[in-house]
Nucleic acid binder design. Structure first.
Lengths: 349, 349
DNA sequence: TTGAAAGCGCTAACAA
DNA sequence: TTGTTAGCGCTTTCAA
């Protein structure tokens, strides 16, 4: 066995005090020490005080791994998210963590970089770590991922998506409904020539759902997306700029461009302004997500308000309740409302 | 003891296979199973294959807690950050995690909400969890936090700060130098009446350093901040707007406003534009951080480019090397360069 | 109200 | 090259 003074990795070892040390010094058994640690009401107040004092004196830290092994509880929750950049999901993770913290749980974070295969690997890693619950983004995960989830019996919630047809626990909004609302709004204003600069749909069911819903909703009006003004675009301002340039190269500008998210939309807006294309008179633009990014720009962007923070909080609450009360996680739809700004208007022919 | 079928919390228990199960089924000892798991070269290839097959068949997952207990290695790194919102630190955490992932380490994240007392609590929690390394933001931490770090012997790195006078391992840039460079730039342009809209300095040494350095550097030119145009402001666009309004109420507009970060700066810029104050002719504005937010706005913001991603990567590399090779973490300065944009110019009196 | 003692699943020294 | 076995630090049953 390794020797204890190798424990502190790279550190000359001051061995951490254990319950045995506490017990010995306090003249009680380790069982009593454990009871004190776990706030058992069976311990006489006098004894408890004494044990606590010894713990403080010896700078005792409970050893989480040993605890987890003995109790098969880790008080750990995992999250696998596509990215922490762009602040798209960061707000959800932030509120998720805040809620866990209150309940004395710790968060393990893994980033998949929008790669579902990587996501599956991360998922397995987190489960090995003994997470008692998991937060995932969207409903699109590999079969292997869902199988692993199933096998492990770990409680999980998919946020940023809500699809009543799927049986996965969803705590989010319907990307489809929101995208449909955008179409209704534009068509209602009189738009007929509409293009879409969607996000990259590979491995991203939110982007895909937005795209599909736009197509379906347009079909209800006997319309379809203008092919030369429709493409998949990376979530970045310059990418949005380039996309507008490409649309112009491809042919006549449509009267409206639906963008996969606000970042793309703002790129399009900036490029339009640079080229002297009047928004919304000549071109209507819609974003998605209502990111901080667009909060104070002018003209005010028409977009969809996504309840990022609320999804994080509610997911945490649901997961904790599932763990502690044994409730199963019920899907819950959170409204994502259309915010009508100044980048959309009746087209002037 | 709890019964095994209670393990899957809220789940009817299919008990996870253990090494004993694998060993029995494969007709070997648990030591061999362990060796296979840990890629020991001592196992005969034939035997290894067989054991691996059995593991797959039984869907074996190593039990991380048991492993940690037996080997006193957790392969876990912690990070305590002020917030995940605003994407200020998110980029660093993102690249930090990516690097850890490659080395098969897992990241525990805790958010302190800019509260150093909360930070200390989080720190202790993470250490209990057995993290082998820690990522912190800035050099300002409670004495208790530093003492805990010391006692635990856990390797750590402070990013987003670089101060050669402090003995803490810093992987970051000098907020002071960068702030001084802003002053040099403005004074060089001919500004004499300069105000500062700093971030909230309580519990935030980066904000504090920027403020202090501005004052000190101005002093070198026998100048000082215009009192009525100097205040602490929350990191939010509307807060920046309100700050400019307040400066105007307080008295005469200075010729330049140094902002604590880009978010504040953009609020000031927008408000100036709304009020018809010409930037930079009537008012020069400087930001800080070079956030994605300002990448494509016009006029281009004068700001400081902060190597957020690089700090995350380098910190991960340093921490991993400290853990695995036993090197101590050496402080490292990463350049934060002044980006001169179009929001600063010679003042027109 | 307390203590004794049997594990939790794994690693690693030691023996073979 | 493999097996035996003694822990790692804690929780929890059972008995007192």
């Amino acid at each position: 066995m390794k020797k204890w003074h190798e424990v502190g990795v790279g550190e000359v070892g001051k061995r951490q005090a254990t319950q045995v040390d506490i017990a010995r010094k306090a003249g009680v058994s380790t069982a009593t020490v454990s009871r004190v640690l776990n706030r058992s009401p069976l311990v006489k107040p006098q004894v408890r005080e004494h044990v606590l004092a010894v713990m403080a004196e010896l700078k005792y830290y409970p050893h989480a791994a040993a605890r987890a092994l003995a109790s098969s509880r880790t008080y750990t929750i995992g999250a696998v998210i596509p990215t922490l950049n762009n602040s798209i999901f960061a707000a959800s993770v932030n509120s998720f963590e805040a809620r866990l913290q209150l309940a004395n749980y710790t968060l393990l974070v893994a980033v998949s970089n929008y790669d579902l295969t990587v996501e599956e690997v991360q998922l397995k890693r987190l489960i090995e770590r003994g997470v008692e619950g998991l937060l995932l983004i969207g409903n699109a995960h590999t079969d292997g991922a869902y199988r692993t989830l199933e096998d492990s019996g770990v409680v999980y919630a998919n946020i940023w998506a809500y699809d009543r047809k799927l049986r996965h626990p969803n705590i989010g909004f319907s990307n489809r409904k929101a995208a449909s609302a955008i179409v209704d709004h534009l068509v209602g204003l009189g738009h007929r020539r509409i293009g879409m600069l969607a996000g990259i749909t590979a491995g991203n069911d939110r982007a895909r759902d937005r795209m599909i819903a736009v197509r379906e909703q347009l079909a209800k009006y006997k319309l379809q997306l203008v092919g030369e003004a429709t493409m998949e675009v990376e979530y970045a301002i310059p990418a949005g700029r380039r996309a507008l340039a490409k649309v112009l190269e491809n042919g006549k500008l449509p009267t409206a461009l639906i963008c996969g998210n606000d970042v793309i939309a703002i790129g399009v807006l900036f490029e339009a302004q640079r080229r002297g294309i009047r928004v919304p008179q000549q071109l209507s633009i819609t974003g998605f997500d209502n990111m901080p990014l667009i909060q104070d720009i002018s003209p005010r962007m028409t977009t969809v308000n996504v309840p990022a923070q609320e999804m994080g909080e509610r997911a945490a609450t649901a997961i904790l309740s599932a763990i502690e009360e044994g409730n199963s996680i019920r899907s819950r739809e959170i409204k994502a409302s259309l915010i009508i700004g100044e980048t959309t208007a009746t087209p002037r022919h």
